[in-house]
Amino acid sequence: MKAKTKKKSRLQKFWDSVSLILASRVATVGSIMVLFWLVLAFISLFWTPYDYNASDFLQNLGPNPQNWLGTDHLGRDIFSRLMKGTQVVLLKTRLPGEGNIIIPGGVAIWGVIGSMALGVTMGLNAGYRGGWWDQVIMQILDALIAFPRIVLYLVVIAALGQGDLVVILAISITGAPGVARLARSLAMDIKTRDYIRAAETRGESVWYIMFKEILPNASGPLLVDGMLRVGYAIFAIGTLGFLGIGLPPPDPDWGNMVNEARRNIFSNQLAVIWPALAIATLVIGLNLFADGLREEMTRYQK
């Protein structure tokens, strides 16, 4: 009986969030764009039209019945490469070392998880504890924020070399200050609430208050922010790929596809356009989704 009501409430919760998304036209459009790529990513795990790395066709073909999006300068099927390219971003991370160990969750996802973990911990400590904690943490964040993002990526990669983990680290470090600032301002707001006083008068530990009393109430804005950050991360991965220092082969990388095709821009313009569009639609989709959701949530609060 009890289990049933719980199950029902979970279903209810799911429907609530779905209807929240559907209530906003912006969020609906965004989620469709994101879902499109997610579905392609899952399909690519089992099937792509052709081998993504094999030069099976003539070079620089336009779209045709065999190659829906045409072929690139090496005669590879662009659609297969686009499909395969979703995996490292969204679905899998390749660990360094022997044996090609792969863990689930794309580089963009882990990067954002990393920056959230780092940022939330710093932000909650700064915001809730205040005083010296706040001063020191904010000073560190200020220093991190002062780095232009791409310069920081370049520095990290210049220092540590290429690789999935390095990209995750770079995304985590560059994302953390933004998350921390948000978490800090939320914590500073929430800590003035009486229920925090109540917890303090119960003698709860600082960590309990930060993670059990404050965090659950800050999770809404943080999740929306995280969603936006997945967009930024894909943006960053694309940029790094474009600069030739992104995710290493053999998996195709959208940014790198743009970069390679750019050199042949006079002979084959479509080869540039497809991966560029792919990145743009995925990032815009995530942005629209997060934006619509945020708007709907604040309206809900009002």
Partner: peptide
């Protein structure tokens, strides 16, 4: 804003 610089530049 959501379109990366290199995509915009290429276009």
């Amino acid at each position: 804003t959501a379109t990366p610089e290199f995509v915009t530049g290429i276009f």
